[in-house]
Design a protein around this nucleic acid. Structure first.
Lengths: 233, 233
DNA sequence: AAAATACTTGCCCAGAGTGCAAACATGCAC
DNA sequence: GTGCATGTTTGCACTCTGGGCAAGTATTTT
């Protein structure tokens, strides 16, 4: 099963994304994948903190030095899983129509995450890394990186509908809150379902994500303290 | 020159907080402080990434090994500054009356941060560490830690007023959003005022914090950037 | 085929982080 | 005070990280 790489198409490579992936690109992607696979496997079998970069490199069939050409640390290799996960949400967000209320777009994007194929690696990573500080730190970084990207995406969207400058505080506070709520939903889901991937469990996750966006959209008005609308000024 | 440590009071030491601090506790606190001071000083003078743990230890007058008895890394030593900063906000939050709307409590707690003595170290750390990934990671961790503590504080508060179980999703989504909004306000402030500590700059920060809580309380209702309160300067 | 380019690897080195045991400081009882 | 128990610091030795460099190997271009 050789990849379809006709000589006539070869020149189109190296450009980056759309064209036929060159041999080099395929190799790099394969190596990258081999590394994260090996890392996940070791994480599963030995637990966090009980294996070295050299172990990963050996398992992936590359040298230790090459590992560092791809990732700066064990955690970075594992976090690439979370990055992929959050990129999924981000892509969904970008696909939403520009006129849609932004929280609705966020809700739609987050709900896409409650899919077995998408959430499985992250669920596993989460339960395994729960105890490891190094790992959690990388996870935080991934969420933060996603926040930055949502800020960009939202800024672009607002630039279309609004004339003047966009309020940076609005953008950043909103993006941060959306991500925090998504994270909260995931946390509660893990606590409640333990990363279970059954349809019922995923439906719980989906509902939690929807609910968290609902809370955000209503200004957290509901809960016990009787004042729904905080009078500012 | 012995500190007022009467024999009758001596037994109360070593318990943790309120009693007369023992000699050991004083020494440890002093060493801890010496370390973070030395670390901040080196950060100022050499820039992030241009000094080692050994440099810090030398400057603090302790051995490298002892440094690691106090902090797990250079970044951890620097992040203790941010921890202190966020603890200030947390204490303020805990002091608010239990009946108060929670977003109002959060607003009040955050506004306390816009104080020269409190914000100065963090402003410095922020501007110096802006470029350094290691450092930002530790900052993220500090904010996350604060989120966890706010969750606990809010849970306690709700346990007083509400009878049954408290909704975990509500708690976590709210706490995360509050922290995200506080962070967003700080980010915008740094971008706008560059960590300046003049009264005008601090008043901008105060207003940003207030505005971000307003946004949160209103569910980010205004989609157009025209509505939120105008920047003042 | 040969030259240009990109990727891999081994070698080397400074620095991070940690277990251990000896030295040292402090607290407590007599 | 003396002496013992307990907590803290330090040096030592060791493994692991992370990255510069140059030689080697694969891929692409001419």
């Amino acid at each position: 099963m050789t990849p379809s790489l006709s000589p006539s198409a070869a020149h189109a490579a190296a450009s980056g994304d759309a064209g036929v992936p060159s041999r080099r690109e395929l190799n790099k992607a394969a190596t990258r994948q081999a590394i994260t696979d090996a890392a996940m496997d070791l994480l599963r079998r030995r637990g966090p903190g009980n294996f070295t970069v050299e172990d990963i490199a050996d398992a992936a069939g590359i040298s230790r030095r090459t590992f560092f050409n791809y990732f700066g640390s064990t955690e970075a290799a594992l976090a690439s899983v979370t990055f992929g996960f959050l990129d999924t949400a981000l892509q969904q967000f970008r696909l939403r129509p520009a006129g849609e209320p932004i929280l609705e777009s966020a809700r739609a994007a987050l709900v896409e995450l409650a899919d077995p194929m998408t959430v499985a690696p992250v669920a596993e990573l989460y339960s395994l890394g729960q105890t490891n500080p190094q790992l959690s730190r990388s996870e935080l970084e991934a969420w933060d990186h996603c926040t930055e990207q949502i800020i960009d995406a939202a800024r672009e969207r607002f630039a279309l509908t609004a004339a003047g400058d966009v309020d940076e505080l609005y953008l950043r506070a909103l993006a941060g809150s959306v991500i925090s709520c998504g994270k909260a939903a995931m946390d509660v889901w893990f606590a409640r379902c333990g990363g279970d991937l059954t349809p019922e469990s995923l439906s719980v996750l989906r509902q939690l994500l929807i609910d968290s966006m609902g809370l955000l959209g209503s200004g957290f008005a509901s809960q016990s303290p009787a004042t729904p609308s905080p009078d500012r000024h």
